[in-house]
Amino acid sequence: MTDPTQDPRFLQDPYPVYAAMRSSCPVQSLPAESGGRAGYLVTGYAEAREALGDPRLSKDTAVFFADKASRRRLHSAVAHTMLASDPPRHTRLRKLVTKAFTAKAVAQLRPFIARLTEELLDQWPVGEQVDFVTGLAVPLPVVVICELLGVPEADRPDVRRWSGELFAAGRPDVIDAASHSMADYMTGLIAAKRLHPGDSLLDRLIAARDGAEQLSEEELVSLAVLLLVAGHETTTNFLGNAALALLRSPAELHRLEQNPDDVPAVLDELLRFDSPVSTATFRFTTEAVTLGGTDIPPGAPVWVALGAANRDPERFPSPDLLDLDRDASAHLGFGHGIHRCVGAPLAKAEAEIALRAVLTRFPGIRLAVPPDQLRWRHTRLVRGLASLPVLV
């Protein structure tokens, strides 16, 4: 069979494709791409949740690719991040960063996030067209994570560009080059911080490396890159997707404009409706696994389509309807299990503050172009808008 996710229309709206695949079989094989390997795609909710929590599905890419020749030149600090590891290494690395994203830590960041949001919205000309993505969804989480890590302001445009290039579907040369640019930059920033220490999260990770020897040098660089990229990519897509979902649902948008304090209660439904991470990162079977009635052999790549699982009618009735009264707390937008997004509390805080501010300051906001003219990022791993023109 052909891979339906390769259809150009898939980027615009993947959900009909996912629905057709799920109704046929919630776990099915996909053909190997050129130079790649055949694998399995999970589209059902129950099967996705099971796969995300199954220790027989490894994320250790170093093991998977150890005896496989590759023409790729992805930087090792990007190829072997915390996301691409299993316990006990994953447990040790995650423990070092979890404290930065606790409810208490995020609460301390809220005043900064609120001030930054207001400063960005101050630049929106009332009565004119604005790009929601470049005017808010991109700069807000980029500045927040850069502040958290101590990335100088002058370097942030380069960081954002490299991050975007890491998700360039079908462009391995671009991805590989960006991985080296990002890793080389973080290596230099770490060296500079060793000379002039501060109190950022990156400084604390350096202390863990240089003091207690809990991190190797490559692990330090790898964690820094991962936090920088994952710390804003998900939120950028979350903000854009949530705004579009509301703009295409006038009744729900009006409801929130009248009651902006309801925003925190509807974030899970917005995450479910159009997941900012379309497909979870790479996994492979370490032994034979039967999932959703499908037998998967050892050593097979498995991709879990979070966006598809979140639209499974077996778990969420009328899944293609945005329903702000729905209890969507079981969504898989941030993953599930030991690899669930460590930055989820920060992403939710940023989305809450940003959406509430937009709804309060710009009642009557609406799309400036027909939905079918919107441009989506050319990537299957994450789902996000390249731009979102709105009239304010």
Rank of each mutant, 00 (worst) to 15 (best):
D268A: 15
Q28F: 01
T290K: 00
D155V: 10
T236D: 01
T61C: 01
E350P: 04
D274Y: 08
Y45Q: 04
L228M: 15
P197G: 11
L388Q: 06
P4H: 12
D122H: 06
L306N: 08
F10N: 09
P250V: 11
V266F: 03
D199F: 00
R326C: 07
F282Q: 10
A177M: 04
V130L: 06
A230G: 11
G333F: 07
A38W: 09
K104C: 00
I175E: 08
I353A: 09
H336D: 13
D7M: 02
P345F: 08
S179T: 01
A224M: 05
P276R: 07
H339Q: 10
H75L: 02
K95L: 09
T281N: 12
R375V: 14
V289W: 02
Q108M: 13
G333S: 13
L57H: 05
A265P: 00
K95V: 00
D323A: 03
R9F: 01
P260S: 10
T91V: 05
A183S: 15
P250C: 08
F238N: 00
L205W: 13
A114L: 05
A32S: 13
F273W: 15
D372C: 03
V221Q: 08
L359P: 11
G164P: 05
A62P: 00
S34C: 07
V221L: 00
A69P: 00
A169G: 04
T235P: 04
L83R: 07
P14W: 10
G231Y: 09
D60Q: 11
R204C: 00
T43D: 07
P55M: 02
D210S: 12
T290D: 12
P26Y: 03
